[in-house]
Design a protein around this nucleic acid. Sequence first.
DNA 1: CCATACTGTTATTCTAATGGTTACAGTTGA
DNA 2: TCAACTGTAACCATTAGAATAACAGTATGG
Lengths: 140, 140
Amino acid sequence: MNSEFTIAVHSLVYLASRPDRMATSDAIARNVNTHPSRIRKVMSLLRKQGYIATKEGIGGGYLLECLPENATLADIYRATSIGSIKPNWCSGDKQGNCSIASQMAAVMDEIFSDTEKKMLQHLEEMTVRDVLERVRIAHR
Amino acid sequence: MNSEFTIAVHSLVYLASRPDRMATSDAIARNVNTHPSRIRKVMSLLRKQGYIATKEGIGGGYLLECLPENATLADIYRATSIGSIKPNWCSGDKQGNCSIASQMAAVMDEIFSDTEKKMLQHLEEMTVRDVLERVRIAHR
DNA sequence: CCATACTGTTATTCTAATGGTTACAGTTGA
DNA sequence: TCAACTGTAACCATTAGAATAACAGTATGG
């Protein structure tokens, strides 16, 4: 799996932990330990789904728009990494006349897509608030 | 996810489809569309778990040792790709004193590991025989 | 017992994916 | 208008992944 999911979850948890629920890409990047530009790219995806709002200009940054208990990890996964469970590489040969070689890629595709759905059902049960809780408990 | 899982499933399905349940790495590689050496590497993993037997020397190759209806995709995933759901990249800074930055990696680790377990529960319900069936149905 | 046809494994090379960095235009408030 | 932000795209560096080569080990048939 793609690490933009990790970055997105971390960023939202970080925002949720702040009293004003705001931070700049720079502050988030320092906490996440990556480049501000990468944060901005991921935040862009989250903004398009309405989980955060952006304020440009001086005193700007990112603001958590949703309640931490309403943002599920499934939402975040869908916004950042859908399809990433499937490897890029495909086996077989679609054009060939062997039934296995020609159909395997399509069948595996279905299997990966079904598996991802199950994964999402599980991620549906965890929210940004839950993750923040877990972080705080782990910190003791 | 790692494509060795795909190669392993494809190879086992291919073996299951053969009347004698045998094939050389060369024949499997042609069907899967990769290099024989890669097949041998993956088959080595499957052999260690007892799903196939190897015969070296002339007339040798790989033999399906289990019943196709007993080999689940979860078994194959465990043999080839366990842990591959988790990205290599980790956020935060374990040494730092911010509770979020220092704990996030561990919490995400747990989340990925739980998610992988759910995935395995789903893969548990599909066998090599089922995949072969699906391939045959898709071929019509 | 030797030539042949296999597997097992490691090392090397090539390619694609990923993450880091830079650059710069656009936006906003003091 | 300047300074502090975001939005994006482009580029570079690193790493992971796949293909290939190489060769030792093993079994079989002549």
